[in-house]
Design a binder for these strands. Structure first.
Length: 269
DNA sequence: AGTTATACCCGGACGC
DNA sequence: TGCGTCCGGGTATAAC
């Protein structure tokens, strides 16, 4: 499921391909994936220029030059493909934005969506998101501020979008492993050095994952060599029974706060 | 206020 | 192979 690094990878790869270009046509094959009548959606989007592409947590915002924004959330299983009809993978698409000869295909939007909003409205909808973990303003002091008073375990905390935005099930486990902390550890039990390790792990893990193109398996376009590079670098996520890369003990799969969780019971305390 | 339960949705995994 | 069943997962919302 796309999390912050996957959406950031999309943003980086997609920006030179579509920003500044005009949407020549729109196809909608699943009305539930959008939030307005298809005719209205098509009328508002067709002919507009994509002025900017912005990532906010796990969302991508397509800023149109008419003041409207396409707000994308891929949720589970959603993905995008950019290319020609012939190159497109054999998957049903829910929405297509045609850009000249090529098109941006939105695939696997089940719970995911591509919603049309006025820029101000999109802003309002995103207002409850917690801080961006990679923003320069997100200092260790700020981290301690948002940590204060929390009683939850690390798993529940890290995936809580109002605490920090952009982290999901995979990276919460990878962050806990990098910090040497069990996902079931509760915030009030964290020692000062553990708080510091956690903060450092959040930044380093997310940055590494972005550098490697995230862990999504489907390339954005033919010849895309970046997307998915982090998949083979995941230390614990979805690696039940495999040896811990640090100590060799088998990775444990557990359920914490109703979330699937993977960790090393030797390296993480 | 913070934490937990539930609905949403359907591709894909699984069983027969 | 083919059909049926069921699960997973992030988020909004409701309920403790």
């Amino acid at each position: 499921m796309p999390e912050l690094p996957e959406m950031e990878t999309y943003r980086q790869l997609l920006t030179p391909l579509i920003v500044g270009r005009t949407v020549s046509d729109v196809s909608i094959t699943r009305e539930k994936s959008i939030n307005v009548p298809p005719e209205y959606f098509a009328r508002m989007v067709t002919g507009t220029r994509i002025a900017a592409l912005e990532r906010r947590a796990k969302h991508l915002l397509f800023h149109l030059d008419n003041g409207q924004v396409l707000l994308l959330h891929l949720m589970l299983g959603g993905s995008m493909f950019y290319g020609s009809e012939a190159q497109k993978p054999q998957r049903t698409t829910q929405v297509v934005l045609h850009v000249g000869e090529t098109a941006l295909y939105f695939i696997g939007l089940r719970l995911g969506y591509l919603h049309l909003h006025a820029a101000q409205e999109a802003e309002r909808l995103l207002a409850k998101l917690g801080p961006e973990p990679l923003a320069p303003q997100f200092t260790f002091e700020r981290f301690l501020d948002v940590l204060a008073g929390r009683k939850a375990n690390l798993k529940a905390l890290l995936v809580d979008q109002s605490f920090l935005s952009g982290i999901g099930n995979c990276y919460s486990d990878e962050i806990c492993f990098a910090a040497g902390l069990l996902p079931a550890r509760r915030v009030p039990t964290l020692q000062p050095d553990e708080q510091s390790n956690l903060y450092t792990a959040i930044g380093s893990l997310l940055r590494e994952a972005i550098r490697c193109g995230g862990y999504m398996d489907m390339p954005l376009y033919v010849g895309d060599a970046l997307t998915g590079g982090f998949d083979s670098l995941c230390r614990v996520y979805d690696r039940e029974g495999e040896p811990c890369p640090r100590c060799g003990a088998p990775i444990v799969k557990d359920e914490i706060s109703a979330k699937k969780s993977f960790y090393c019971s030797v390296c993480q305390r």
